[in-house]
Nucleic acid binder design. Structure first.
Lengths: 135, 135
DNA sequence: TTCTCTGCAAATAATTTGCACCCAT
DNA sequence: ATGGGTGCAAATTATTTGCAGAGAA
């Protein structure tokens, strides 16, 4: 199965790269529509699936509903805001986590792991503080 | 808001406790139906939500589509099978993970973390081996 | 009695798919 | 020209919600 570089695929990749955020399919759709108004959401979904399948982008399965997509395919972990769902990268030593012994567990053959940290982002901390001040 | 112990709630709790697995809402629904055929799936969803909100059970947001629910509310991590989606507990040292330094990251105030290990469960390893032998 | 809970059906949210046409290779 | 890609609408999957009646406290 050969991948073709269509116009829509190119723009999807460009927008994902440009933002450097961890966008959901519909967020990306909104941005892509600006340069290609007739593109369909299904095309965005299909391309995100195909491109992550091919290892060109990464699919993030975080807590919460929607999947997010990352232009950066290097293995890394994420931190997300429990208030606004925004997701940022975590720069931490994956080897240190790997050394936590979970190898022998339950007879599973281990394929990988995912550390997901939950927190409140600076923006939402700010909002909470101003709400406190009002009361 | 007072919680009432209805018949359906009791059975839902009993089945969740009995199985000691990490069931999805519809898996639980199928089991509960055996003792209470007229219960509705919406009631199962509502109860799982309310009970996890109240801290009586735990809601697991793992990779993949469906949420799973755990009778065991103690903090612990999970390993799941990438073939059959089954989820098992991981007994590992949470303090060791906590010591991986992610505190200062991005100005977030940290609320918690979740380590999710992916692997292939013994049952699915078996199936893969017999498939190999056939070819 | 009061207010939470339930069943049912309909609504929602996120994602996927069938189909006929389009266009990159 | 061939077969992957697209837009559109409809289908699917997981979950939630409105409502009127039921039942726990």
């Amino acid at each position: 199965m050969q991948l073709r570089m269509t116009n829509q695929r190119e723009i999807i990749l460009r927008e994902l790269k440009k933002s450097r955020e961890h966008l959901t399919a519909d967020e990306l759709y909104e941005r892509v529509k600006k340069s290609m108004p007739r593109i369909s959401l299904a095309t965005v979904y299909r391309n995100l699936e195909i491109l992550s399948e091919a290892g060109i982008i990464a699919k993030l399965e975080m807590s919460g509903r929607q999947k997010r997509f990352d232009y950066d395919v290097r293995e890394h972990d994420h931190i997300y805001c429990i208030k606004c769902q925004r997701v940022d990268n975590l720069e931490l030593d994956r080897d240190a986590i790997r050394s936590v012994n979970y190898e022998s567990d339950k007879g599973y053959s281990i394929q990988g792991y995912r550390l997901e940290v939950a927190g409140i982002c600076p923006g939402c901390q700010q909002k909470l503080r101003s709400k406190e001040n009002m009361s």
